[in-house]
Design a protein around this nucleic acid. Structure first.
Length: 119
DNA sequence: ACAGTGACAACAT
DNA sequence: TATGTTGCCACTG
């Protein structure tokens, strides 16, 4: 695995299909670091710096394990994330809750993970 | 080298 | 159930 952890996170997030979501912890687990959920959040936080290279990372599809939008800072940000998700067909409640029983992404299979970490 | 930071998650009251 | 508290990890200056 030559890629940095951050790069690996972006790699996984790019695979989340439109209309589905997953959690920080699940992304971390897929990368073999089940307790690095917080680091995943930190990685996505870094995307806010404008960098053409990461424009294709659908960061809005990552929420917390309870199904809530978990972005901090300006309340605007949460509304923005909710809007992006609704545009993709994901139902987001006024309380920013998403039904994981419906919209949770199944995740990557092991072979795909190995390939991603190798690239 | 090292302490501080944060878009988390699990556990304990 | 609902808060509050405690680990955690990768990255940064």
């Amino acid at each position: 695995m030559s890629k940095s952890f951050f790069e690996q996170v972006y790699g996984v997030v790019r695979r989340i299909p439109k209309g589905k979501v997953t959690s920080y912890g699940r992304v971390a687990a897929m990368l073999g670091a089940p307790r690095a959920a917080r680091a995943v959040g930190y990685a996505l936080h870094g995307l806010r710096i404008k960098d053409q290279r990461y424009d294709d990372v659908p960061w809005q599809r990552v929420i917390n394990h309870a199904g809530f939008i978990s972005i901090r800072g300006a309340p605007n940000s949460k509304h923005k994330q909710a809007e992006l998700l609704r545009d993709e067909g994901v139902a987001v409640g006024d309380d920013f809750k998403i039904d994981l029983n419906i919209f949770l992404w199944a995740g990557l299979e092991l072979p795909e993970i190995n390939r991603m970490m190798r690239d």
